[in-house]
């Protein structure tokens, strides 16, 4: 190997140590037997995972976050899939503009979306409620579903659907038996991104704080401001494990390459 290749590889390994170290440290600390968050740990224990289930605000907010992520994802699919199907078959400049608009929530600062929505939704009478939070989460999740489904559908040749229709299938039957199975990996990936985005969101959820709307990240942030104990590490590890499991399951079902055509 050439010297420059060695240098490149060395740099890459250093880069991944930088990327992984802060995360690995948290995973290790979540299994500590000590009463404080420090590394290296004196011994192993599961007590901080038990602590999660003893501290009520964690469990309550975990429940809120899960419900919220499901509602926002379902709403994003209902609103987003039809739009994605239409836009990926249209080649006009006008469709590009619409697509840009539908994806634009991704480019706006989250803190501005959160702050602006709080006032507007209160004015509309939604107040600080689960419904209000679900609406704002749908705004930020919708682009993920649209982008992924559109990318997957664009890679599907129109000939499949044309063949079904020529053979006499109705529009609905064509959709159900040809289109839907073909775009399912896109829906799965889009839903996964949407779920994880909602579940992890802090800058928007932060503005909608109340007993019914405190999400897990909001409660974790509040907890961290007063205490620095390993229960935050245990929660984070649990969250990461769930995300990895979801990704692996989606990969087994649909294949990661198919799902990442979009990115």
């Amino acid at each position: 190997m050439r010297l420059t290749d060695w240098a490149l590889w060395l740099f890459t390994v250093a880069f991944f140590i930088f990327m992984i170290l802060p995360i690995a440290v948290v995973v290790v600390i979540s299994f500590t037997s000590a009463g404080f968050a420090a590394f290296p740990i004196p011994g192993w224990s599961l007590k901080w995972f038990a602590r999660i289930f003893e501290y009520e605000p964690f469990i309550d907010s975990l429940w809120v976050s899960l419900k919220l992520a499901v509602v926002a994802t379902v709403a994003s699919c209902v609103l987003g899939i039809p739009a994605a199907l239409y836009l990926s078959r249209s080649r006009s400049g006008w469709a590009t503009t619409i697509t840009t608009f539908l994806l634009s929530p991704l480019s706006m600062p989250m803190i501005v979306i959160g702050f602006a929505s709080l006032f507007f939704l209160s004015w509309m009478g939604f107040g600080i409620s689960f419904l209000a939070l679900a609406i704002v989460h749908t705004v930020i999740c919708l682009p993920y579903v649209i982008r992924t489904v559109a990318a997957v559908y664009r890679a599907v040749p129109p000939a499949y659907e044309e063949a079904a229709m020529i053979l006499g299938a109705s529009r609905f039957r064509t959709f159900q038996e040809v289109t839907l199975p073909l775009i399912r990996p896109g829906i799965a990936a889009g839903s996964l991104f949407s779920f994880l985005t909602s579940f992890d969101n802090l800058p928007v959820s932060y503005f909608f704080g109340s007993a019914q709307t405190n999400t897990l990240p909001v409660v974790m942030l509040a907890y961290m401001e007063h205490q620095f104990d390993p229960s935050i590490a245990a929660l984070s590890t649990l969250q990461l494990a769930l995300a990895v499991i979801a990704l692996v399951v989606a990969d087994r079902l649909y294949g990661i390459e198919k799902m990442t055509v979009a990115t």
Binding site: M19, I20, L21, P22, I23, A24, V25, V26, I29, A37, A38, F39, P40, L196, D200, L202, P217, M220, L221, M224, F228, I232, A233, S236, T237, Q239, L240, A243, V244, L247
Partner: peptide, 24 residues
């Protein structure tokens, strides 16, 4: 992709532990 699945809270927690006065 793995780091993209971790929350911002997890990462900052990691930085705080690594770089604390008596940290790693």
């Amino acid at each position: 992709i793995a780091p993209l699945l971790t929350s911002i809270i997890m990462r900052t927690f990691g930085w705080q532990v690594l770089f604390a006065r008596r940290g790693l």
